[in-house]
Structures are given as C-alpha cells and as structure tokens.
Design a protein around this nucleic acid. Structure first.
Lengths: 337, 337
DNA sequence: TTGTAGGCGTTATCAC
DNA sequence: GTGATAACGCCTACAA
C-alpha cells in the first residue's frame, strides 16, 4: 500500500502538502493540487486511517451499545445510525450489553478501549450514578431511551408515560372498562413509565387500579403468554389487554387463542413499539409507535454536532409516541363474552 | 490517559518491558512483572489500541457487510458474529450494502479503508468476478450465503437447493399435487437455487412444471401478497404454496386470508429461513431452518483461524437446511375446496 | 502557498 | 531478561 510519502515524492511536493490536499483544511495552489491528485490516483493511494487517528487523536469511529443485536427494535436503531454516519464518513463499532450490568459496563469499557470518539448507548442495567460518573470522563456519549436528570442534554428519549396513557385510552375509548396490563420488567425505567401512564389513564377514567390485573412480563413472547395464563387464572373478566411491547402482545395473542378466545372479538389487544412484527400477527396489531429510527438518527446527529462540529444540525431530544390503529382492538359493544 | 512511557517510569523499567508484560510474548522476571502491573493499576493505564494497530499493522477489527442492518435474518447473523469476536477481544465494524452493486462495492471499500484485518461479506449484487479479483488483493474475506467456485474455501453457505427440495417435499408428502411457488428475485443465487430444488422435487414426483405457477417475488411481505394475487388471477387451483422466505410467506398468508381462503384448511403455506417472525404468524409458519447463527459463528471462526492463527478451530463450510414443522401446512385430505 | 520536523503511543529488532 | 531505538503513516505547528 502506497504511503503519503511515496505520493509526495511522485508529485514532487512535500508530504505536508499531500496531507493538505487530502484534508482540504489549508489552501493549496490549484496546480499543485492537481499534481498531487494525479499522483494519488496513479498509486491508488488510500490514507491509512489508523495513522490518521493516531496523529490527530480522532478515530472517526462511534461505539454503539445496545441490549441485543438482533430483534426488530435494535435493528432499526442501528440501521438508522449507521446510515447517518456512513454519509459522514464515520464508522460504527457495535457491542451488545444483554441488559446485564456487568456486560454493559464491559461493553462500554471495550468501546472506550477502541478509541471511539463518542458512544451511543442503549443501556438498561447500569445505574444513573454510573452514567453520571461516566459523563465526567473524557468520552462523550448519548443515551437512547433513558432519562438521567443530571445529564439531560445527553438523553434522547420517548415519552413512555404518554405512550402507556395513549394505549390505555385506545381501549377506554372503545368502551372497554375491564382491562389487563402486561408490563415489562419493572426495574426498567421504560417499563415503569409505560405502566405509570396506564394507571394515570385508568384514574382519569375513574377506574380503580387493581393489582391483580397487572402481570410483570419480560418483554419477550413468553411474557405475553405467561401473562394471559396468569390473568385468566385470576378469574377476573377483561375485554381489553395492554401489552408493554409488541413481542408480548404477539405472545398474548397466540396464547389467548389457544385458550379459546377469539381476537379481537372477545379480547382486544394493544401492543407498544410498532416494530415490524406487528404487521405479521393476525389480526394485525394495534400499537403505539416508537419512532426508533428517527431517534437513532438524532443520536447520530447529536454526535455529529457535538463531536464533529457540524453546528448546523438541529437536535430534538424528546420524542412523542402515537397510536397506530390496526385490527387487534375493536369497540366493546362488538365484544360478545 | 496514561501512556506506556509513564508506566515504565513509575515502574522503573524501560518501555519495552512494559510492552512485554502486556503482550506476554517474551519472558519477564516475575518480580518486574509485578512492579509493572502495579504501576499500570496505579495509573489506570489502558493501552491505546490505535497506536498498537499502527505499530503492529493489526487493527483487531473485522468488517461486516450485510444487505440490511435490520431484519431478523441479519440481526441473528451479526449477533452471533459479534459474540464470537467479542470473547476474542476483536471488534466488529458494520456496513450495509442494500443489495445494490455500487453500495456493496462502496461498503467494501469503506471497510478496507478502515483497516479491517478481515471482512465477512453477505453480498448479493456484486459479481463473482469482482469477488475473485478482491481475493487477490491483500484483504482476506469470507462469504456468507454465496458459493463462488474459484474461491470455494472462502464460502460459507447453505445448501439452498436442498432447502427448496425439502420444502416442496413437505407439501408433496401431505398429498398436495397442485402447488404454487413464490420465489425471491431470480438474479439472486439463493433464490435460484431454492427454486431449482423445487423443480427437482416436482420432477421426481412426476408433476409437470408449469411456469404460470411461479411468481417472482422480492423477499419482502409485498412479494407474498402480490404472489397470491397473481396466482389466484391465473385461475389455477392450488392447495399448497411454497414461499422462498418467511416474510413472503407471511405476506401471502395475510393476503390469502383477505381473499377469503382459510389457512391452512384451504391452503397450506411453507416458508424458508425460520426467522423469528415465523412464531408470530397465525397459524405458526411451517418453514425451512436456515442456521444463520451457526453460520455467522463459523464465519467468525474462519477469521479467527486464518487471520489470528487460532489453529485449533474446526471449520465447516457447507450447512444443511432442515424442515421445521408447525401449523401452516396440513395434509391435502383435510383440505376442502 | 509550501516545506521542515517533532510528535502520536505502540511494537519489534537489536544489542547488552 | 532487559534496555535503546528505529519504525508505523500521518498531522500540524512553525518557518520560510
């Protein structure tokens, strides 16, 4: 591989000049620029990004930590982040945190040791405190789907409480008064917030909160099916079910059907996230849209703006969920049970 | 951040010695090792991986190019690759090729310019020739889901033809004789191979191949729904449908139902890939398992073995598909139409 | 506008 | 075993 030195020799200029035409940061006479470019082309020169990084202490790489690399949610997130950085000539290093504190810390350490210029984190297990500490180190980062008051400016989040509220309202407006709720693991902030929104909607509708109507799921399919079993086991009637994400809604749908309930005739189900699978279920899932692609893109822009001085970018830190009506919820009047 | 130099000063040894204890490649007296390690701990020293890379011309990074970053298939692939490398202390840089030749080439260029030690490629649009040329450059790579005869040793692939054959056999064994086939884009090798397997199974069963029973889809949901519309429009009876991937099977299922067909009573549908969504459909999708996680892991091991000299690893280059029976296919005798 | 020269933080090859 | 010391390929004051 040709080096900058060989290019400079062939072009008959100094190595500094070659560097200048590459980086377009210092004016270079048109004629010498031409010579240099010709030499670069002739040699098939490609700058060594590692040497560039070492000399400039900029790696042009951004670390991304998500809970899982598969799954529709993170896929969409990573995809939008990569696209945004790619056009900016930056690259993305990924790692998985698996929602476990130790693994998340490891992942962050790992990305730092890789000299990332910045981090985009979707972490769940690590404490607020840890993140505040981290913000005092020299590695900049953005948080997705998490609000940490002390470092608000680093947080890109969804109004999850509003989402839970809206989901509940969908069913209430359809006349359902007997509801079930399958939450995510309640130690996760987003699961908590969604549930809070649910309770608020109930309260506003004058419906007493009944703990037996809550099942704490795992955000996976099994959480949905277990939830249905649990709720049915309680012996309480319910015509509407809110699930804190789409996977659980799908699991609930399948299980409910196996228990002899027809969906949505006997049970209306609403999910949360609007990930791809919500198209695939039958009936198609009514859900709450989580604009994860937009949020991922915004995280990328945050980095572009703060780390790579692309000042012109506009930022938005808080996003709003919205209802996506499909076929899994119908009005209570059409419910026969 | 502390450098190796400061560590050496604090430990009272030369910087070369510090390097030695880090890399454990040259014997170092126990007592000096201790001193050095103490110094490293005291300073919170972390080696600068960029400087290491420059000096050793090893970046410890592996580039991965896939068609899309989202989608269940690539998610599973990336996930298994990352896991394998992570434990080896390597990291993964990702890029998307979007099944377009120019973008795929760009992506490869991009990863090369990032000084990856090796590449793992899931490319579709780029020609065999290009890949053969690439293999003559100095960047090692493995191909996933593609067979290029001239560089067989670099290819990790599924026996797609067998998959198409097996899928068809599932329906044939259930007594279906009137079949439809929704393929992927036939310029893609895997789509072709699956279709070939289908035709072979038909031939063995003594069923004439009828071009009108083939619809060329796009590997997305829309391909499935369009396929159903097309097949129904042909006015040919069919009680079994093979779709070349699960997404299309799901689209077909939904559309068929909208057209008044009940699944599987009136139409048995089989998919291909066994991605996550096959759980979510109703009825649950019978499909062909594509062991993408195992193949991704194998690709990672290929790199570990060939590039990072982990000689002990065993490699497997060709994988076999297998039938996953679920609920979307039933025997023809139970079909009333 | 262009050239010179001193880093950037390691690894690796020599000697000792 | 350990210590100098040259790379590695580029960036960036500072000079000219």
């Amino acid at each position: 591989m040709a080096t900058i030195y060989e290019v400079s020799k062939l072009a008959g200029v100094s190595l500094a000049t070659v560097s200048r035409v590459m980086n377009k940061n210092t004016p270079v006479r048109e004629s010498t620029r031409k010579k240099v470019e010709a030499a670069m082309a002739e040699l098939g020169y490609r700058p060594n990004s590692i040497a560039q990084s070492l000399a400039s202490s900029r790696s042009n790489s951004i670390g991304i930590l998500v809970s899982e690399l598969h799954g529709p949610f993170y896929g969409a997130m990573i995809s939008s982040i990569e696209a945004e950085f790619r056009t900016a000539g930056k690259h993305v290093i990924i790692a998985a945190g698996h929602s476990e504190e130790a693994t998340e810390r490891d992942g962050i350490e790992f990305l730092i040791s890789r000299n990332c210029d910045a981090l985009i984190l979707h972490v769940e297990a690590v404490s607020d405190d840890y993140l505040v500490q981290l913000s005092k180190q020299d590695i900049p980062f953005v948080l997705i789907n998490r609000q940490v008051p002390a470092i608000e400016g680093h947080c890109i989040s969804l109004n999850n409480k509003l989402g839970g509220y809206l989901a509940t309202q969908v069913l209430l407006k359809q006349g359902h008064r007997e509801l079930g709720y399958i939450s995510g693991p309640l130690w996760k902030a987003d699961a908590q917030d969604r549930y809070r929104g649910h309770k608020l909607a109930l309260q506003e509708a004058g419906i007493d909160w009944d703990e037996r109507r809550l099942f704490e799921g795992d955000f996976h399919e099994s959480g949905g099916s277990d939830g249905i079993k649990y709720l049915l086991g309680q012996g309480l009637a319910f015509t509407g079910l809110i699930c804190a994400n789409d996977e659980m809604a799908s699991g609930a749908m399948t299980e409910a059907r196996e228990q002899g309930l027809s969906i949505p005739q006997q049970l209306s189900i609403i999910g949360f996230d609007n990930v791809m699978l919500s198209h695939y279920t039958y009936p198609k899932l009514t859900t709450i849209d989580y604009p994860i692609a937009a949020m991922g893109q915004m995280a990328a822009r945050w980095v572009l703006k703060h780390i790579y001085q692309q000042q012109s970018l506009q930022l938005q830190l808080v996003f709003e969920p919205k209802v996506i009506e499909r076929d899994s919820c119908v009005s209570q009047s059409s419910t026969a049970r």
